[in-house]
Design a protein around this nucleic acid. Sequence first.
DNA 1: AATGAATGAGAATTCATTCAT
DNA 2: AATGAATGAATTCTCATTCAT
Lengths: 241, 241, 241, 241
Amino acid sequence: MSSTKIRPAEKPPKKADHRVVLSRPGAPGGRRDENRKARTEALGKAALALFLEHGIEAVTIDEIAHAAGVAKGSFYRYFDDKTALVAWLVDPVARQMREALARTEARLGEAKDRAGAFTAYQELALALVPLAIFHFDVVRLYLQESRAPSRGACAPIAALVQAIDDGSVRLSEVAVQHGIVAVDDPRITAFATVGAIEQLAMSVLRGRLDASPPEIVGTLIRMILDGIGTRTSAPKDGATA
Amino acid sequence: MSSTKIRPAEKPPKKADHRVVLSRPGAPGGRRDENRKARTEALGKAALALFLEHGIEAVTIDEIAHAAGVAKGSFYRYFDDKTALVAWLVDPVARQMREALARTEARLGEAKDRAGAFTAYQELALALVPLAIFHFDVVRLYLQESRAPSRGACAPIAALVQAIDDGSVRLSEVAVQHGIVAVDDPRITAFATVGAIEQLAMSVLRGRLDASPPEIVGTLIRMILDGIGTRTSAPKDGATA
Amino acid sequence: MSSTKIRPAEKPPKKADHRVVLSRPGAPGGRRDENRKARTEALGKAALALFLEHGIEAVTIDEIAHAAGVAKGSFYRYFDDKTALVAWLVDPVARQMREALARTEARLGEAKDRAGAFTAYQELALALVPLAIFHFDVVRLYLQESRAPSRGACAPIAALVQAIDDGSVRLSEVAVQHGIVAVDDPRITAFATVGAIEQLAMSVLRGRLDASPPEIVGTLIRMILDGIGTRTSAPKDGATA
Amino acid sequence: MSSTKIRPAEKPPKKADHRVVLSRPGAPGGRRDENRKARTEALGKAALALFLEHGIEAVTIDEIAHAAGVAKGSFYRYFDDKTALVAWLVDPVARQMREALARTEARLGEAKDRAGAFTAYQELALALVPLAIFHFDVVRLYLQESRAPSRGACAPIAALVQAIDDGSVRLSEVAVQHGIVAVDDPRITAFATVGAIEQLAMSVLRGRLDASPPEIVGTLIRMILDGIGTRTSAPKDGATA
DNA sequence: AATGAATGAGAATTCATTCAT
DNA sequence: AATGAATGAATTCTCATTCAT
């Protein structure tokens, strides 16, 4: 038809895909290093706020730098690009999430009975609480961007989505293998649960739900466990978290 | 710092917010009219595919026109802008969704007992099935974009999100008023349910869940109803859908 | 007929109507600041030349940037848009013109007799001479664009037209109130005078009139003053400038 | 610098520069021909109104066609382009103006004395009155666009400007040669007069001057003739028009 | 190191002109 | 002949990224 350029197939990753800029002079821990850390934090914080308000793709480097009180050019001294910044924001959460999932999977594998499984799940929940508290805004960001196609700067979020999906599926499978829950396809309950949790979180964040967290969690757990446990013959021992 | 332009606060909607350009002369039903419809469809279809692959914001008018096999300028003969196109895509789904929610709300209001309520919910589910089937990709798009902040071309999606949220909350409230379900805050279950449904849908669409739809629906309904009904004294009559 | 978009009613002025981007860091007076000034001048100069040759509306940003030897994008670092550039060009002239008119009005108000009035007018003429000399091209631009409807980038010119019109009318009124000139409607002579001056200026600029400025001015003043004074009984004292 | 296209040097005139489309089938004077004339008029009228409101360059073919109630494509059946339309609008005025100027020049050449010259000028004025009356809007358009550089669609106006300039200069020269007026450079008074007239006309049209036409004309003539005649020894016979 | 200026590749949108119906 | 749809070049404006100061 014409010769208009169509879909440049996503910028070819120049070197080592979107890294935070590392290895600067100055003794680690010294004045230089501290300043560096402070700036990085400032940029990250400013970016996070803007991302939450406008969406990752819609925010420009200019805006981030401006909001952080640094020059645009300086941005690039700290991050390769927006993707690197997002990765830097998401990274701690992603790591802890992966670890928590892995640990739970292991515990679950060792669980002997239903009660043991509940304990494992409880541990997972307990591990996620500080995550949600200390990385509140990152979690919000995750919720907001998690469903978009993995484009550009959102890629690190998509990776986390993948990780959580995989983890929860594996968890369900282990749970079923151990006869802890009785459903035909454990992934169904896994996804349903994740979806319910995320949606409730979004609703709270959007100000559409003002119930107290304990109430929400209580209702949700009752809902899910009763639901999941339905077809099990297992004793409804005191396991309701 | 400087006076660099920051955040132009979203383009002011020119006149009658993004309407599809309608009503051209040439006998309605004639060759011209047919062509028009065909082109509109072509553009919509091409756009939908691109939106699903890359996300609404990431797709350019150029790409849409190219994919639809028309010149860039022609796009604007059919749609005011990308927002109008999204609205055109989403519109039928939004309308039916609103209607279905309203109808269910009415049914629920008339329901005498738990069984009656189940019937109402079932009807809702039945109404949504054709929606999901005939507007499969639009539903996918909705799921994909629904959590993003309401920016630019995504606005029509955000409006639909709002409508669904409102509707499901109202539904829950009616249900509780009628003693059909017994939870402290009906919105919790409402959101949880919507979240579960959406997540399952996403998982299927992403190819991460290959269970058969009946199985998914069955599991989900059991999960939710049992969960919701938990605290009710109501008889667990044959109501399991 | 159809719903084709017709006349979008002039782009809504975004925020603080077309201001020149001001105040950047970098020690004022330093290299940066100097460069900035130089660039601004370069753009203004290039634009002015192009405007004079082709008319304001016909000149594109691209052309201006190119002529100034800068990249297209750079233009926007210096001016919000073409309107801002025109305003920047016209501003000094407009300011001085307003001041001169205001001063003359005051002088005229204090004048006791015809001779005093002439003095006031002479002062006005003297004030305009440097304006015409130091802002030669801007005056040309003004003449060229002053009659066009106030569209887009020409708006600052239209504003100046308005100011001059108002000023000259007020001047005439004061003159009549003080019995300095005797005509029925002072605005007639005011407009006639302005028109004569402008046209002569245009003719010189277009190379259609090569008389020496003193000759032109002399002829014009004789023409006008004699004309205006005609019906007065006042002594034709040596007042002919 | 770059390869950006700069100034395409005004569209190369394809064939016989901007002509009204001629030679259509249908007997001249027949039904076809009448329709044709009606359409042409409609387009011209609509265009004129739009030109006056927004300026020639700012008006699009689309708008003209729309305002005339015809399809855009039809426009091209009647006019080659906007320039041809402007030429068609201006043409009668231009022709009559040229003729009137030529006639006055001739009369002036034959004039024996000052009174004869006045008669010639009076005839000119009388010839221009119907022009101003019957082609009111075209005169307005002329005034509005006459100072813009001869670009694109305004070219026919520029041509008229040229003609009037030439004519009035020749007139002045003849007048001086015959000792009718006594100024050093006749072109000065010529241009001054034209400028005064035009400005007054503009002011009336812009609603900034509401004196009655006779009053305006009277004041102006007194102003100019007294001014022009000043240095003449000639008797101030009853020549004041 | 920090700054912000410069660059130019897009992206959205408009519009004169051609052409199928 | 009339219509209005199609086209694509032209235009404005944005923004990631580089680079001189």
